[in-house]
Nucleic acid binder design. Structure first.
Length: 200
DNA sequence: TTGCGGATGGACT
DNA sequence: GTCCATCCGCAAC
């Protein structure tokens, strides 16, 4: 596997471009002697002050201040009392745009992920933002981390033939009509996959 | 298939 | 002090 980290230029593109572009890339998390990695198969874009669903819509607070920095950093927030979610800050400083990484297809560290998640079922390790964070040991320590650093980063994938679909975002109550969610078509590691299958 | 509890922190009154 | 948040798991229906 080629370990070429995505450049700052990549992250500072338009938020929707980054959200789409991240599909198929590989998220890597290094924690002491452990390494976790997975192919990003689902993302959502949050467009700052133009987007009532974005955390940054209300303006800068201590919680969301990382979003207001420049693209290429990690924004990790805690929600519902027990879940962390991992976002990638995009665009230029002050725009407060970010991409939520919602699901990955596990590659390395799968045994460790099973321990972290308390399940042996591989399709239930990383198919949701809270689950992914738990599996990858992502927590608020990584809020503000440089994605060009050592602890968490995203690398190129030699395979690039992913078909990308768009849809409405999940788990929000405002600005729900926008098609800001991107996912790898027919990929079984996407969140809500089985629920959709059951409903179909 | 629905609905709610978990358990924390920030915004706002 | 109150409200509710980019969610998840599981009990009960």
């Amino acid at each position: 596997m080629e370990l070429k980290k995505l450049s700052k230029d990549f992250y500072q593109q338009k938020c929707l471009t980054v959200a789409r572009g991240l599909i198929g890339k590989i998220l890597v998390r290094i924690k002491s002697n452990k390494i976790y990695s997975g192919i990003i198969v689902e993302t959502e874009a949050y467009l700052g002050e133009k987007d009532p669903a974005a955390h940054s819509f209300i303006g800068k607070t201590k919680r969301n201040e990382v979003m207001f920095g420049e693209g290429g950093f990690s924004y990790v927030y805690f929600t519902y009392g027990n879940h962390y979610c991992f976002n990638v800050v995009t665009e230029k400083s002050g725009t407060a745009h970010a991409v939520l990484v919602r699901a990955v297809e596990p590659l390395l560290g799968i045994e460790e992920m099973k321990k972290n998640r308390g399940t042996d079922y591989i399709y239930n390790l990383t198919n949701g933002p809270g689950k992914l964070a738990q599996a990858f040991e992502i927590n608020k320590v990584l809020n503000g981390a440089d994605l060009n650093g050592r602890e968490i980063f995203i690398v190129e994938n030699e395979r690039k033939d992913y078909k990308i679909s768009k849809s409405k975002r999940i788990g929000i109550s405002k600005n729900t009509e926008k098609l800001y969610r991107f996912y790898a078509k027919d990929n079984i590691f996407v969140s809500k996959y089985f629920i959709k299958k059951l409903a179909a």
